[in-house]
Deep mutational scan, measured.
Amino acid sequence: MISLIAALAVDRVIGMENAMPWNLPADLAWFKRNTLNKPVIMGRHTWESIGRPLPGRKNIILSSQPGTDDRVTWVKSVDEAIAACGDVPEIMVIGGGRVYEQFLPKAQKLYLTHIDAEVEGDTHFPDYEPDDWESVFSEFHDADAQNSHSYCFEILERR
């Protein structure tokens, strides 16, 4: 099963200049909980913004210009990325925008964090048809001392 995991502000903004323009430790914990011990696929820009392999996960970098870091697996196509994951129950696609666009048609599940923030962004989550998805989990949280904005975790499964 292919799943996408993303944090989205208003207007589906997911990033600005290779960074997330908010401070939500709870979302980072949600991300870790849902990706640990699963292969993660990301684009080169996302890889560069993280700066290191995510521990406890097979890191697969999709790029037309593969790098030389041998701590991760470099691939040039969506099919190659899927094959590099091996026989696993769930593959997690973690961004960025172009990689989400490439995998959305193949995805069966979306793990979304909806952030109540209007922020400037240069990267967006692809538009998706809500009628194609069923919400199977939703959990709202107010902003607090650690988390700069209110947010809602949601899991959607393709109908």
Rank of each mutant, 00 (worst) to 15 (best):
S3Q: 02
S3V: 00
S3R: 00
L4N: 05
L4F: 15
L4S: 03
I5E: 02
I5A: 00
A6C: 11
A7T: 03
L8A: 05
L8K: 08
L8R: 04
A9F: 02
V10K: 00
V10R: 00
V10Q: 01
V10Y: 03
D11G: 11
D11T: 07
R12P: 00
V13C: 03
V13S: 04
V13R: 01
M16Q: 04
M16R: 07
N18M: 06
N18T: 08
A19V: 02
A19F: 14
M20A: 00
M20E: 01
P21R: 01
P21A: 04
N23C: 10
L24W: 02
L24T: 13
P25S: 07
P25Y: 11
P25W: 05
A26P: 04
L28R: 00
L28G: 01
L28P: 00
A29M: 02
W30K: 15
W30F: 15
F31T: 00
R33N: 09
R33P: 02
R33I: 12
N34E: 07
N34W: 05
T35G: 03
L36H: 06
L36K: 13
L36W: 05
L36T: 08
N37R: 10
N37E: 11
N37H: 06
N37W: 09
P39Y: 12
V40M: 09
V40T: 14
V40W: 00
I41W: 03
I41L: 07
M42R: 00
G43L: 01
R44E: 02
R44Q: 05
R44C: 14
H45F: 03
H45T: 15
W47M: 15
W47H: 14
W47G: 10
E48P: 04
I50S: 00
G51K: 10
R52S: 09
R52C: 09
P53R: 09
P53Q: 11
P53E: 08
L54M: 10
L54G: 00
P55Y: 12
P55H: 09
G56S: 07
G56V: 06
G56F: 06
K58G: 05
N59G: 10
N59I: 14
N59W: 04
I60G: 01
I61M: 14
I61T: 01
L62N: 02
S63H: 04
S63I: 04
S63V: 10
S63Q: 05
S63E: 01
S64W: 06
Q65A: 07
Q65P: 03
Q65E: 09
P66G: 08
G67W: 03
G67F: 05
T68A: 11
T68W: 07
T68Q: 13
D69K: 06
D69A: 09
D69V: 08
D70M: 11
D70T: 10
D70R: 09
R71Q: 07
R71F: 07
V72C: 11
V72W: 13
V75N: 05
V75A: 04
K76M: 08
V78R: 13
V78F: 10
V78I: 04
V78A: 13
V78M: 08
D79N: 07
D79K: 04
D79E: 05
E80N: 05
E80H: 14
A81F: 03
A81K: 03
A81M: 12
A81I: 12
A83C: 10
A83R: 08
A84P: 06
C85K: 06
C85V: 11
G86P: 15
G86W: 07
D87L: 09
D87C: 04
D87H: 11
D87Y: 07
V88K: 10
V88G: 11
P89A: 10
P89D: 03
P89K: 07
P89Q: 08
P89R: 07
E90G: 04
E90V: 04
I91Y: 12
I91G: 15
M92V: 14
M92L: 15
V93M: 03
V93N: 01
V93A: 14
I94A: 03
G97A: 09
R98L: 02
R98S: 02
R98E: 01
R98D: 02
V99P: 01
V99H: 01
Y100S: 03
E101D: 05
E101F: 10
Q102E: 12
Q102V: 14
F103P: 02
F103S: 14
F103A: 15
F103R: 02
L104G: 03
P105W: 08
P105Y: 10
P105M: 11
K106H: 14
K106W: 11
K106N: 13
A107L: 03
A107C: 07
A107S: 08
K109I: 08
K109W: 12
K109V: 09
K109L: 12
L110C: 04
L110A: 03
Y111I: 12
L112I: 10
L112H: 09
L112C: 10
T113A: 07
T113V: 15
H114E: 15
H114W: 12
H114I: 14
H114N: 15
I115A: 11
D116Q: 15
A117M: 05
A117K: 03
A117D: 09
A117Y: 01
A117E: 08
E118Y: 11
E118C: 12
E118G: 14
E118Q: 14
E118F: 13
V119S: 12
E120V: 05
E120R: 15
E120N: 14
E120D: 15
G121P: 00
G121E: 00
D122Q: 01
D122M: 01
D122C: 00
T123F: 00
T123I: 02
H124K: 13
F125C: 08
F125M: 14
F125G: 12
P126N: 13
D127N: 11
D127T: 13
D127L: 13
Y128I: 10
Y128G: 05
E129F: 12
E129W: 13
E129S: 10
P130L: 14
P130R: 14
P130Y: 07
D131A: 03
D132T: 13
D132R: 13
D132H: 08
D132V: 11
D132F: 11
D132I: 14
W133N: 06
E134Q: 11
E134S: 07
E134T: 09
S135A: 03
V136R: 10
V136T: 08
V136A: 12
F137T: 12
F137S: 14
F137D: 10
S138R: 14
S138P: 06
S138G: 04
E139W: 05
E139G: 06
E139F: 08
F140Q: 12
F140W: 09
F140T: 14
H141G: 08
A143P: 04
A143L: 08
A143W: 06
A143E: 07
D144I: 06
A145S: 08
A145N: 11
A145K: 08
A145C: 08
Q146W: 06
Q146M: 08
Q146F: 11
N147A: 13
N147K: 02
S150G: 06
S150P: 04
S150E: 06
Y151E: 03
C152M: 14
C152I: 13
F153L: 13
E154Q: 14
E154R: 15
E154H: 14
E154N: 15
I155M: 08
I155G: 03
L156A: 11
L156G: 07
E157F: 04
E157M: 06
R158M: 07
R159M: 13
R159D: 13
R159G: 13
